[in-house]
Each structure stands twice: as C-alpha cells, then as structure tokens.
C-alpha cells in the first residue's frame, strides 16, 4: 500500500513539475485571491483586520478546489484510470498517493499564501510562523478529504459545479479549526488542542479514504 502510494504520488508530482500548472496558474490565483480579499475589506481595514486567518483559509479552500480538479483531470487523461485498474494497483495506495501529492502541492501554495497574508493583510509574522505546523496538518486533511470528494464528484468528467457543493460542508469544520488555531496562535493561546483536532480530522479522512476509495474506482 505504502509503495503504491509513493509511486502514485511521485507520478502526480512529476506531471505537476513538468506542466508547471502549480507555478503559473495556482500560485498566482492564490495571491490574486488574497489581494481581492484585501480590497474587499477596504483600505481602512485591510491592514489591521482580525479577519486575516479566516481569509487565509478561505483562499486556501478555493485553491484546494482548483487543485482537486487538476488532480482528477490528470487521472482521467488518455486512459490513465484504465491502466491503473489493469495494473491491479491497490486502490487504498492510489488514494494515499494522490492525497500525498495534493498535500505537497497545497503545502507549497500554503506557505506562499501565508507569506502573502503577512505582507498584504499585516498578519503578525511570529504568530503566523507558530501557526505553520497546524496549517500544514489542516492542509493535509483538506488534501485527503479533497481527493475523496474529487473521486466522488466524477473525477474530472463530472460537472465542475458539483465538487464545491459536495465538498464545502466537509471542508467547513476544517475551516473552523484552521481559523481558530491561527487566531489563537496570533493571540498567544495554547495550540496543542488544535493540533490534536486537526490530526483527528486528518486521520478520519485518511481512514475513510483507505476504506472507500476502492468502491469509487471499481467499475
């Protein structure tokens, strides 16, 4: 299972590196969304708002949606799904691999957007650095949930409007946990409970994915 996971993750990341979609499309999108958030707050509030953590996670949610679509489209192109099926790869491994690749991509984007939040929304640098570990865990949970929902919504072939409807209710608790942990980090609150909560969410989505991804892929 682990070997399959690494194989699939390697494949996805290589495709991503060669196509440069992450660099030229996703990262600019994330930064632009952050700028738009600043504009939405208005010049009076953009610099000293307590909405920074929430906006950061909102932007990351939108980025996640883009990346899920991307991750599923790769799978749909020129018979990849069929070849994966005929190779007899363990579906749990495929799930873990795709989730891992998505997580790595989200981590890269997350660090850039976090830096953007510090620059544009004047979120405190030290607090943001303290929040980074919980950000990484929550982004990983988003990746796991997103991979599952990507397959659910039809893996790139389904209507693109379906994915947000399906995934937002599942993302909402992660958004809440993320926003609160980031805010706590900014105000010097205790972080360990948020660590535990986000870890539990991550484990839960990984577990469900390992169990049910095969059901979605079998045909």
């Amino acid at each position: 299972m682990i070997r399959t996971a690494l194989l699939v993750a390697g494949k996805d990341l290589r495709i991503e590196r060669r196509s440069r979609v992450l660099l030229w499309q996703v990262l600019p999108f994330g930064v632009m969304a952050l700028v738009l958030s600043g504009l939405a707050l208005g010049p009076a509030h953009a610099g000293n708002s307590s909405a920074g953590p929430g906006l950061f996670y909102l932007v990351m949610l939108l980025v996640t949606l883009l990346m899920i679509n991307r991750s599923q489209v790769i799978e749909g192109s020129s018979g990849t799904r069929t070849s994966v099926a005929t190779l007899g790869l363990d579906p749990a491994g495929v799930f873990l691999g795709k989730a891992l690749a998505l997580a790595v991509e989200l981590w890269i984007t997350g660090v850039v957007v976090l830096a953007g939040a510090v620059l544009l929304l004047h979120t405190a640098l030290v607090g943001s650095a303290e929040a980074l570990p919980s950000v990484l865990v929550i982004l990983a949970a988003l990746a796991a949930a997103g991979t599952l929902y990507g397959a659910l919504s039809g893996g790139g072939q389904g209507p693109a409007t379906l994915l947000p409807v399906l995934s937002f209710p599942a993302f909402a608790p992660l958004l809440i946990a993320g926003e609160r942990s980031y805010s706590d980090a900014l105000h010097g609150g205790s972080l360990w409970q948020w660590w535990l909560i986000s870890l539990v969410a991550l484990v839960a989505y990984l577990g469900i994915g390992i169990l049910l991804y095969g059901v979605l892929e079998e045909s």
Binding site: L152, S153, G154, P159, L162, A170, L216, E218
Partner: peptide, 21 residues
Amino acid sequence: LRRANDDPELRARRSAVFAII
C-alpha cells in the same frame, strides 16, 4: 450528486459513499 450521474450503478455507489461520510 444523484442528479449529476446517469449511470445507475455508478450513481448508487458514489451516493452511498457520500451518505456514509
């Protein structure tokens, strides 16, 4: 999700997974 899928078996499987989540 039910409305987005035409293939009855695929639809049944996907929506069952979604309901459990």
